[in-house]
Amino acid sequence: MTFRIGPRTSQIIAYITLLVMTAITVIVLFFIIFYILKNGIGQLTLEFLTDRTRDMGREGGILPSILGTLFITIFAILIATPLGVGSAVYLVEYTKGGFIRRIISFGADCLAGVPSIIFGLFGFIFFVITMNLGWSILSGGLTLAVMILPTIIRTSEEAIKAVPYTYREISYSLGGGKLDTIVRVVLPSALPGILTGVILGIGRAVGETAAVIFTAGSSLGLPTSIFSSTRTLAVHFYILAREGISMPKAYGTAAVLIIIILAINFIAYRLMHRFIARYY
């Protein structure tokens, strides 16, 4: 006779196992955030945030990296947003299935799966070497723009699709053309959703290392133009931690990164909720 567990018992065992495993996942996440903040928050003085980096990062602050991250991210967003939103508008408003739609979607999906080191290799050979832009904010920003493009396309596409069809009918029936309808009705209605995508793109850009280290370089000087080489926060943190230059400074930089990422996710989440509350 074989021993069998009854359905009730197996249900209880399964429930507890799933609960524990999910709890572990959540605890690990909170632990990572808590650990970084606990060890780094003490470093976050005004001086740390506004001072130049000295002695390879052993002394001073992280101002050059904050500025570098800011400029590269802004640059990437300025390029990727019009391309991403434009692609999404085309996908939703101008294609009705068919080959073009499939090929554009395929491109966006594949691009989303490309690992950041490949973007690093590409940005290095294409922007830095072939186009002779050197290690610069420009090269780094362009590389990141390509990297976050699929995120913006996908979220904008979902947001535009969610705008009720009747809004378009109304606009057409009032004599609006296709472009009027898109610019005055569809895009304003989809704005929170689109912004969510842009903000998630900012998050990816801020946290990225492999794709920027070979395109923007790792100079610690204050950036003076878009052709300056710069070291983003994530790259600076990586170098501090890996080369063991200064653990306290590494924790401080990581805390800044984590706080930015948390803020970005929070804003994206709130925007998404507003959007969902409006249309679903």
Partner: peptide
């Protein structure tokens, strides 16, 4: 086409107001 649709208005079964104020809805057309 836009003149045609201006001259011939269409009211739908379910009232669909565009996002935004009363004023903006009227001013849209």
């Amino acid at each position: 086409i836009s003149e045609l649709r201006r001259r011939i208005g269409l009211i739908f079964a379910t009232p669909v107001v565009l996002p935004g104020s009363v004023y903006k809805n009227i001013a849209y057309g």
